[in-house]
Computed example of a mutant assay.
Amino acid sequence: MVFAHDTAGALRSAVELVNGVEPPVTLATEADLAAFYRRHGYTGRRDGTETELAEVLALAPRLLTLLLAARDDVAPIVNAMLAEAGAVPRLVRHEHEDWHLHAIADDAPLADRIAVETALAMIDVVRSGESSRLGVCADDDCAGVVLDLSRNRSRRYCSTACTNRNAQAAHRARATGSSPRPR
């Protein structure tokens, strides 16, 4: 395992949020946000309002900047996010999850909790020298974020759709004897 379970989970959540606001949009309704909340195992406050959805969606550009920042540029972004939230790290354990970090009150707005959890995760990314695990999708027509948690660092695409599209293009190119689209 590259990162602790809470770090990997926060990174997956942030990547899904960032990728979910770009076409094809997968995070656009309160129901989408409720499913996102459950899928990523969030606990604590969940308002289920349009305001909460808007706050979470508004966070996406900032998370994109953080996730794709050069290693030495991450610190000021992380420090600002933690300071703005008044973060105070503490160890917690939930019924179905072992010890992990929280740094903001459980009743804080969901967008603030996502921001703080992502900032904490990026601390681990920087400290472990694993910034190369985050990047942009190798599909020429996609700007999605890729999180590569594989052992061999082989993930190049942000989604199965991009992977399949590029595999099909390569197959068609081999079948016709031409070369695939240039990168």
Rank of each mutant, 00 (worst) to 15 (best):
A115M: 01
A31Y: 05
A87S: 14
P180L: 06
A111L: 04
D47V: 10
L120H: 01
V15R: 01
A34F: 09
C158G: 13
C162G: 14
D73V: 11
L63E: 04
E22Y: 06
M1F: 13
E50Q: 15
Y37H: 14
T160Y: 13
P180N: 00
L57H: 07
H96N: 08
L101W: 01
R38C: 09
A167W: 01
G20K: 04
G41Y: 06
Y42A: 13
N79M: 04
V74M: 08
A103Y: 06
T160I: 15
I114M: 03
H96W: 00
S150E: 09
A143G: 15
E130W: 05
T163P: 05
A80H: 12
E95Q: 12
E16Y: 09
R174H: 12
L91C: 10
S131H: 08
E95P: 00
M122I: 01
T163R: 14
V145D: 02
R12C: 10
R153S: 15
M1D: 13
G86Q: 04
C162A: 14
A119E: 03
S154M: 13
E52Y: 07
Y37F: 15
R46D: 06
L82C: 06
A105K: 01
P182Y: 00
D140T: 10
V74T: 12
D106M: 05
V56C: 06
A111C: 08
R155W: 10
E84P: 05
L82I: 09
I123M: 02
S131V: 08
H171P: 08
D73Y: 08
A121L: 03
A8H: 04
G86A: 08
A167D: 07
V18K: 02
L82T: 07
H102I: 10
L120K: 01
R62G: 15
R46N: 06
P76N: 12
Y42F: 15
A119C: 07
A60Y: 04
W99Q: 08
L63I: 07
A161P: 09
S150Q: 06
A175E: 12
F3D: 07
V21H: 02
L64G: 14
C158A: 13
G86M: 02
N19R: 00
F3S: 09
A85D: 11
T51Q: 15
D141H: 13
E97S: 07
V146Y: 05
G144E: 06
Q168Y: 12
A115N: 03
R39D: 14
N164Q: 12
L66V: 05
T29Y: 07
E22M: 03
A69S: 13
W99A: 14
D112V: 05
S13F: 00
G41L: 01
L149W: 10
I77S: 12
R39Q: 15
H94T: 10
D47A: 15
L67C: 09
E55I: 02
V92R: 03
L33A: 06
H100F: 10
A60V: 10
G135R: 02
T43E: 13
A14D: 05
P180R: 03
R90V: 14
D148N: 11
